[in-house]
């Protein structure tokens, strides 16, 4: 590196105060509440709090459900993102708006909506129940469904963005080589948007892990079955706020660990 480029680097590295100040405030704003949790955590009784079997159950359930929900989102959301990004369906703008509705909908309302459709008396649920004996509310599958409903937009938006940014000429090249649309999608399109899919899946997983409203409304709240960490935290808050803080810490640590490791491996964001 010559002295000239080093000097230019230095000049570029100097950040304007106008940006640094709000950036620092933003960081403090995000970190202080977490710090509060850590400071007020019942460290002396923490191990006892966490040794209760219910905690392990809730954590295991949370991780399993969030992962399954992410899988559901990938299977359904990636094709949906493709449809939004690549098809020339009329009314695509409306479709895109509909897809993002779960983002703004209070999750509890989402849960109620799911009940109205998939509940035991729901529009579809009544047939699921009477024909196949399948009942989704109050089941672990219901938790996965509720989480997927709330988290899917994160994946769809992220993947759609990646698809729009991808160079379509590679798909044309594949077509001239005789590849069908499906073959092209699988072998060319998907790999080229893999970082977008990974980022979307991580967001999706994180959202699913913290999901509360839709889960408790649609899937209920029963230990080992449907009581995920956020539900356990909420219930604990009613009687023993210290236990709630301990549980939150566990959720916090697990999610930070998983997200940090995924980020490095998949997304390769600059550190």
């Amino acid at each position: 590196m010559t002295a000239g480029t080093r000097a230019r680097r230095g000049a570029r590295g100097r950040l304007p105060v106008v940006l640094v100040l709000p950036a620092a405030l933003g960081l403090v704003f995000l970190v202080i509440p977490l710090l509060g949790l850590v400071l007020r955590a019942p460290w002396s009784t923490l191990l006892d709090q966490l040794a209760q079997p219910e905690v392990g159950d809730a954590l295991r359930l949370s991780l399993v459900c969030a992962s399954l929900a992410t899988l559901v989102c990938l299977l359904l959301g990636v094709p949906l993102a493709w449809l939004l990004a690549r098809s020339d369906l009329p009314g695509r703008g409306v479709l895109r708006a509909l897809v993002t509705v779960p983002l703004v909908l209070p999750p509890v309302v989402g849960g109620v909506a799911l009940l109205l459709v998939l509940g035991r008396r729901g529009i579809l649920g009544q047939y699921l129940d009477s024909w196949f004996g399948v009942s989704l509310p109050f089941s672990t599958a219901g938790v996965v469904l509720a989480e997927a409903f709330v988290a899917m937009p994160f994946l769809v938006i992220s993947v759609e963005g990646a698809l729009r940014g991808a160079d379509r000429r590679y798909e044309e090249a594949a077509a001239t080589l005789g590849a069908s649309r499906w073959h092209t999608f699988r072998r060319v399109t998907l790999p080229s948007v893999a970082p977008g899919i990974a980022a979307g899946a991580v967001l999706c997983w994180a959202r699913a892990l913290g999901e509360f409203g839709a889960t408790i409304t649609f899937a209920g709240n029963f230990p080992g079955q449907t009581r995920t960490m956020p539900l356990a935290v909420y219930i604990a808050l009613e009687s023993a706020p210290e236990a709630a803080i301990a549980l939150s810490l566990v959720l916090l640590v697990v999610s930070v660990l998983v997200l940090a490791s995924l980020r490095e491996r998949w997304i390769g964001g600059p550190t």
């Binding site: 109620v112 009940l115 109205l116 509940g119 035991r120 008396r121 509310p137 109050f138 408790i216 409304t217 899937a219 209920g220 709240n221 029963f222 230990p223 079955q225 449907t226 009581r227 539900l231 909420y234 219930i235 009613e238």
Partner: peptide, 20 residues
């Protein structure tokens, strides 16, 4: 042997109202 332990009485009642 309940299937769910709701967070408040209104939520519990909602499950009845919806026939769940």
């Amino acid at each position: 042997k309940p299937v769910t332990l709701e967070q408040d009485v209104k939520a519990t009642l909602t499950k009845v109202q919806l026939g769940e």
